[in-house]
Design a protein around this nucleic acid. Structure first.
Lengths: 197, 197
DNA sequence: TAGGCTACCAAGCTAGCGCTTGGGTCGGGA
DNA sequence: TCCCGACCCAAGCGCTAGCTTGGTAGCCTA
C-alpha cells in the first residue's frame, strides 16, 4: 500500500472520487462499496491504496486545511490595513470554497462528529488558528477606528465565518457568480450594510 | 400503534428524546437502540409508537415547519414597513432557533439527504415558501427606498437566511446572549454594516 | 371480574456495513 | 528471462443496522 508521503496518481484520483460522494451523501452514509462503484473497482480493492475509509477522509481534509492556513498566513504577513486584510481573507475563503468544494462541504457537515475522533484532533487546532486570525483582524480594525466599536468581535467573527462557509451549500463554480464576485457582493453587504444611505 | 392525529404524551416525549440524539449525532448515525436506551426502553418497543425511524423524524420536522410558517404569516400580515418586517422575521427566526434547536439542527445538517426521500418532499415546499416571504420583503424594501438598490435580493436573501440559521451551531439558550439580543446584534451588523461611520 | 387497551420485553430476522484474505494480471527493470 | 511491485478480483468474516414477532404486566371500564 502506498504511504502518505509516496504519492500516486491513482490514489489522488480515488480521494477525489470519494470526496464527491462524501460531500453529496455524507461521510458516514457513503459506503466503501459506493466509492468502489464510482471508481469502477470492487470495494476491497480500495484497501490496496488506503488502510481504512478514515484514511481517505483524512487525506482530503488535512491537505485542504494545510493550503488554507498557508494562504491566510501569506495574507496576514502582507500587513495591509485591517479592512484590506479582512477583504483578502474573505476573498481567499470564497476561492477555497470554490476550489475545494467537496472538502469544505464535508468539513461543515461532519465537523461535530469528526471532532470526537482522536485522529481528527487537528481539526480543532486548525479551527482555532482560523479563529485567532480573524479575530485579530477585527480587533485591529476596531482599534484603528476602521470598524465600529459597538460590535463584539467574537460574535461578529462567528457571523462572518459562518455566513462565508455556509455558502458552500449553494455556491457553484459554474454558476452565474464567480467566487470573487460573490465575495465582493458579500463584502459590500458587510461593510456598508443593507440600509439605503 | 397510536396514529399521527391521535396524540399521546409518551409519543411526544419519545420524539423529543430522539430529536436531541438526531441533533447531536445526526439522524443516520443515531440508531433505534440509542433512542431506546435514552428513553429507558428496548429498541423494539419504539415500534409500538412509530412504524419506522423515519416517522419519528417526520413528526419532529413537520410540526416545527408548520409553526414557523404560521409565525411568518402573522408577521407579514401585520403589514409593517419592510425594515420592521425584516426585523421581525429575523427575530422570529432566532427565537425558533432557540425553542426548536434540535429540529433546526437536524434540518440544517440533513437537508440535502432528506430532500432525496419522497416522504420529505414537503421540506422543499416549505423552503420555497420561506424564500418567497423573505425575498418579497427585500424587494419591497428596495422599491420603498429603505434598502440599497445595488444589492441582488436573491443573493442577499441567501446570505441572510444562511447566516441566521447557521447560528444554531453555536447558539445556546442558556448562554450569555438571548435569542432577541443575538437577533439585534445581527440586525445592527446587517443594517448598519461593519465600517465605522 | 372479564375483556380490552397501552406499553413494554425477549429474541431474533435479513440486509448491509467496514474490512480481510488469498490469489491473479500485467508492465518495467535487471 | 525472471521477478517485483502496482493494481485489482472473488469471496466472505464479524458485526450492527432497522425492524418483526409473540407474548406479558398493569390499568380502565362495563
Amino acid at each position: 500500500m502506498p504511504a502518505r508521503g509516496k504519492p500516486s496518481q491513482r490514489r489522488d484520483a480515488l480521494v477525489q472520487i470519494a470526496a464527491e460522494l462524501f460531500a453529496e451523501q455524507g461521510y458516514r452514509a457513503t459506503t466503501v462499496r459506493h466509492i468502489g462503484d464510482a471508481a469502477g473497482v470492487l470495494s476491497g480493492s480500495l484497501y490496496h491504496h488506503f488502510d481504512s475509509k478514515e484514511t481517505i477522509l483524512d487525506e482530503l481534509l488535512s491537505s485542504y486545511l494545510e493550503e488554507l492556513l498557508d494562504t491566510y498566513g501569506t495574507i496576514v504577513k502582507a500587513g495591509d490595513d485591517p479592512a484590506a486584510t479582512l477583504r483578502e481573507l474573505v476573498r481567499a475563503s470564497f476561492r477555497s470554497l470554490s476550489e475545494h468544494r467537496a472538502a469544505v462541504t464535508v468539513l461543515q457537515n461532519e465537523r461535530n462528529y469528526l471532532r470526537t475522533l482522536p485522529r481528527f484532533g487537528y481539526l480543532t487546532k486548525s479551527e482555532e488558528e482560523v479563529r485567532r486570525t480573524w479575530i485579530a483582524v477585527l480587533r485591529d480594525g476596531i482599534s484603528a477606528g476602521d470598524f465600529r466599536k459597538d460590535q463584539d468581535p467574537v460574535v461578529t467573527y462567528r457571523f462572518l465565518r459562518d455566513s462565508v462557509w455556509v455558502a458552500v451549500r449553494w455556491f457553484r463554480a459554474d454558476g452565474p457568480l464567480s467566487a470573487d464576485e460573490l465575495a465582493d457582493h458579500y463584502l459590500a453587504l458587510i461593510f456598508e450594510g443593507l440600509r439605503a444611505s
